[in-house]
Design a protein around this nucleic acid. Structure first.
Lengths: 203, 203
DNA sequence: GTCTATAGCGGGATAGAC
DNA sequence: GTCTATCCCGCTATAGAC
């Protein structure tokens, strides 16, 4: 699965897009093939089945989440830096990989155990997320800021960052904006959010 | 479509559940029928087609959103009361109608215009949401609290409340909790959230 | 109004030519 | 490695008995 071949890449690229907007059962191999500009049979030649193709897209998505969004925060940073980096990390990742949220949320509602398994594999103790929580807890305690528990805090930050991307089509449609405008808005929102959150944590 | 009939209700109840967890194309009429304990042909007898059945479930869901989540805030309340009520409204509604978030999010990614249309119909100027934004803006200004623009503010509050319900299966699986425990957690979180947000708004 | 049987088709998958 | 043709299952939908 080295993806050196042009056709292979074209298929995966197309698969991501279609799976993202239509979900697993909503997409047809036909549609992926036509978007990738290859023959339907080629999909099976390269990836055996629809299931396997989806598996690859899903695993890849979880990989990005693990790599980009579960990454450990540096211990030496202060809370302000940590929050800014956390928000930055999320917004930039979701702008670069816009198909991530829908893909994962869809799979969570039909196969939560599967998503959990992929997210935790090679990492059975889920060390990075737990460490992140612990580090944040310590930072909160340092400043006597423990009005909120660290899991709640992470959940809140993730919610604020991910949810707007989930309802992006609604927002862009309502305000008649394009994707670039939406991205600009989300980027601008980063600094507003971090000052909002920091203020909430002040003792 | 008066839903006086037991069978009719059983079908709709089943349809909501299946459409929620599997999405439109992931659900089969067969599955709805067996969950409702009626014959497959009865679904067509009562609702003509899968499409029409889904339409009803979707419209009903949007109706709940309009009625419960777009409702106008009382002008005379202060910001603290408004925020508490907003959060309360969301959490209680999502606990009572757990299928709402997935259903809508799914449809947003495939048919954003359709969702917008249903949400705005009988309400073309989208007056309640706009009024809510305006009221909150005024309340923010009263207290000199305008660090955040009111649309951002609404988006943040909605994100914080809705997102956890979207990843509920992940949370309940990871922490090995049941739905009741999850609901208790979300209820407890209400007061934490409102003090968190209020703090963030302090000048 | 509820059942069984079946029509009809869309879509995943494969065979086999090139 | 890429194409066309085709198989075949599963699903929506309907006909028709009861």
């Amino acid at each position: 699965m080295s993806l050196t071949n042009e056709t292979e890449i074209a298929i995966i690229d197309a698969a991501r897009k279609v799976f993202n907007s239509k979900g697993y059962s909503g997409t047809t191999m036909e549609e992926i093939a036509s978007l990738a500009k290859v023959n339907k049979a080629s999909l099976h030649y390269y990836y055996r089945s629809k299931e396997k193709l989806f598996e690859i897209v899903l695993t890849e998505a979880c990989g990005i989440i693990k790599e980009k969004l579960f990454s450990i925060i540096k211990l030496e940073d202060n809370l302000e830096v940590i929050i800014k980096e956390l928000i930055d990390e999320y917004v930039e990742t979701l702008i670069n990989y816009p198909y991530l949220p829908n893909l994962i949320i869809n799979e969570i509602s039909s196969n939560p155990e599967k998503v959990l398994k992929i997210l935790l594999q090679d990492n059975p103790s889920n060390i990075t997320v737990l460490r992140r929580i612990v580090i944040i807890r310590n930072k909160l305690l340092e400043g006597n800021k423990e009005v909120i528990n660290p899991f709640d805090f992470i959940l809140t930050v993730v919610s604020i960052n991910v949810f707007p991307f989930l309802i992006r089509p609604l927002i862009t449609n309502y305000f008649r904006m394009g994707d670039e405008q939406f991205n600009t808005y989300m980027k601008k929102r980063k600094s507003d959010l971090s000052s909002f959150i920091l203020k909430a944590l002040k003792p």
